[in-house]
Design a protein around this nucleic acid. Sequence first.
DNA 1: TACAACGAGTTATACGTTTAATCCACATTG
DNA 2: CAATGTGGATTAAACGTATAACTCGTTGTA
Lengths: 334, 334
Amino acid sequence: MAGLHRRKSRVTLHDVAHDAGVSIATVSYVLNKRGSVSEEVRKKVRRSAKNLGYQQNRAARAMKMGRSSIIGLVIPNIENPFFATLAQSVLLESQRRNYQVFLVDTEGSHESEEKAMQGLVAQGVDGIIVFPIDDSALKSAKSDQLPVVVLDRDTPNLDLVQAEYYAGGRKLAEHLQALGHKRFGMLEGPQVVTSARDRSRGFLDGLSKTSKIVWQQEHPFSMELSKSAEALLKKNNVSAIFCGNDLIALAAIAYLKNNDIRVPQDVSVTGFDDIQFARMMSPTLTTVHMPVAKMGVEAVNVLIRRLEETEAERTRSRIVLDVELIVRESTAPI
Amino acid sequence: MAGLHRRKSRVTLHDVAHDAGVSIATVSYVLNKRGSVSEEVRKKVRRSAKNLGYQQNRAARAMKMGRSSIIGLVIPNIENPFFATLAQSVLLESQRRNYQVFLVDTEGSHESEEKAMQGLVAQGVDGIIVFPIDDSALKSAKSDQLPVVVLDRDTPNLDLVQAEYYAGGRKLAEHLQALGHKRFGMLEGPQVVTSARDRSRGFLDGLSKTSKIVWQQEHPFSMELSKSAEALLKKNNVSAIFCGNDLIALAAIAYLKNNDIRVPQDVSVTGFDDIQFARMMSPTLTTVHMPVAKMGVEAVNVLIRRLEETEAERTRSRIVLDVELIVRESTAPI
DNA sequence: TACAACGAGTTATACGTTTAATCCACATTG
DNA sequence: CAATGTGGATTAAACGTATAACTCGTTGTA
């Protein structure tokens, strides 16, 4: 039985038309709910189409229409749960809206990001949603070729969807201070990244004069703890640690525990993002919940609106979503 | 500047032909490295193409050729790190081979899986790679419409790529027994799933007569621990626990720790899959490493081979990959 | 020398849609 | 009754590409 999969030449408009005894055009009109066709012909056509199992040939349609109904999604790393959730929501919403998605994982490299964007354009996608590696200007800023929605980084001329990072940072600062903390360590995300900067800024701005940053260091958004970070953690000279995201927090906590520094008894730790694992680890992680799924949905909405808008120039969208402080076990009163 | 993205009617073969002063066909031949064209014309054409920034119109090509160079990937849940890694490898390998991927996340529902397969066929993908929810026969077994490669579940007539689950189970049993364990608990994966069954079978077959299964329970492949599982864990009447996958193990360990049962001092715990987090948690997890990335690559290879094979009936592929026991901190001598 | 063979290009067609333009029969209206 | 309009259908062109079939010199060979 193997091998009989040769695509049996699919049934076309022509076949349906023949079966229903009408012209090709009529079938097209019926199926696209356009033009004026009598109710009875309508029924006949629909019946034939269903019987024969007609399926639109997307390639032909795409060619004729000049649009593919495909959108490109470019993310740095699908293995990061944050992006997995994001991708999922984009996928779902797109399908719901009758678009398909080309997903590209750039593995965190600028070069691939560049190539990915190029590639997608070449593939003929209608638009692109991109979560850029960092701020280094999406240079091939394709926006003149096709609509681009940028996640997370405010970029000139491009539609934007992001979250209230700054506010999130403040909330963490307030929460920790309310618990009595005064001496802080910071493992911030890469400061070339706006969203990481905003988190830090928010946190710092939220501190009162009596609070003190004992140490502060940049760290990649990953679970592999840097040597210098380990050195700082080992000092055990702060009562609370702000981490740029959940992955860093996760790694920090693991390291602290291995060095017999208890969380949260000896030191409180906070994350950022609220990935799925944040509430599964022990201690569960106090963090800032990002509306990831919502970001995905909004991005799709913005993009499709732009795709389907009339020629009328629409002004740039800038959607900023609320974040929420989630208090769990990794923070405690001093 | 916003809104000037109206797809500037892309440059076509026609434009290039005009610019190079040759016919459309010649350009096509040059670009596809077919037919016989003199070296000088070749150069001229390539130059024009590059200058004008010609990009193949995939839709037109797809229509003419009857193949889209797109493959569908259907997985249960992209948020599961295991599938994230799998997806990533499929994406990368596909791109390398000049195919694009439609990713569909079925969210673990049969209905969506069914619909996803249908949908992909309708979209005109050339072939499908699917990691099915469970064994309930991919009924719309599209294999007669187009090539399907199944991951993980042996399915009649379909190409298969999977891992040596059985052997993995045995290895765990042997490892634990070598450490002196004799009383075991099992939180197996859903037994409707072949791969889960194979893991359990391998484990059980690997036990000697003197070993004893104290309790055994099915559990979904997720991090949300069931009440009954918690009850069993609390009993604290075994020295080692076999978990159906890493997520279950993760949850179990968290629960045990919260109930002051130490891992591995009081009880050893094993996982299965070796997800990224397995070596980040504390204690790090003893587990069986699945060659996930390799599975993805192989699946793409098998599929593309079938797509591009000549009419000659090829026999069904059945690729089974080795797994590896990874010993970490969550298991210790009794 | 005549003719086959070949190399290098061109012409022409088909792929399956969408949709503007057209056609036709019939009803409405001045 | 002629002119006009209208609902309901058809015809035909176009989208951009791939490729089979063809043309036209030129070369090699019998």
